[in-house]
Write a protein that binds this DNA or RNA. Structure first.
Lengths: 131, 131
DNA sequence: ATCTTTGCAAAGGATTTGCATCACG
DNA sequence: CGTGATGCAAATCCTTTGCAAAGAT
């Protein structure tokens, strides 16, 4: 693997993802970065998101529709996708519970489970109020 | 919602997904269908996969890389993605456990959780043997 | 006869890649 | 300097869509 070299763009992307509570798509990250680096290109954003994902500083969350979301919170946690408004929210589960789930799953399985990500579906609080 | 009309193509797609143990991408389904309907088009496959997903006869599984996978097993169950070889496998969890997880998640959450899908990551049995 | 589904092809969106240049070490 | 990262644009992959013809009820 090639040696990683510092780049202001990557640093800024990483920092943005670590501080935002949203779960931006690559495009949202791009738009955000443009404020600081007006000439930044989408390609750079994608390259860095993938890089950060590979080295584990960022999580990529696949969703059934639209593009993947990115998340700078790397502690194990899970997500909720509102089937009405499409918002992706954090959903807390105790570490203990997460590990328990991983363990349960591992009992009848001949591979090694390193991690898991749960995507919950349903209707979020806001949408319920509106209906 | 418009009335559903019978189509041999849709029937065949549904049947294929119900019997295969793989978790094919749309393209794999297309290639498979071509054996029976040499003129079938990718558009038809996508339209039917989405339709079947909407009416709940098929499940769409988003993965972090490559296209979505489809699964004709509609009983709640979960999946394991091997980070080495990329295979997507079924992973059994008791219904009881799944519901327990959903319930745990719902306790500190103001929305309604209807379902969940867990994607486990790790190294599958085959890859472990090879290394 | 009416309304749905199909095949085809073109369009669309998301992501990746080649290349010359720029920046870090 | 040497190598990695960037910006730009073109390319690629995956999925959706418009339309006229064919199929289902």
């Amino acid at each position: 693997m090639a040696t990683l070299k510092y780049s202001r763009q990557r640093e800024s992307i990483k920092n943005y993802l670590a501080t935002t509570k949203e779960h931006p798509t690559a495009d949202t990250v791009y738009l955000q970065m443009k404020k600081e680096f007006p000439n930044i290109s989408l390609g750079t954003v994608y390259r860095n998101l993938n890089l950060l994902t590979e080295i584990g500083e960022v999580i990529k969350i696949p969703t059934p529709n639209g593009g993947d979301r990115f998340d700078g919170r790397i502690e194990p946690h899970n997500h909720f996708l509102c089937t009405k408004c499409g918002r992706l929210l954090d959903l807390e589960l105790d570490m203990k519970n997460i590990e328990e789930v991983n363990q349960m799953a591992g009992t009848n399985f001949d591979g090694i489970i390193q991690s898991s990500s749960i995507l919950f579906y349903g209707e979020c609080g806001d949408c319920i109020k509106k209906s």
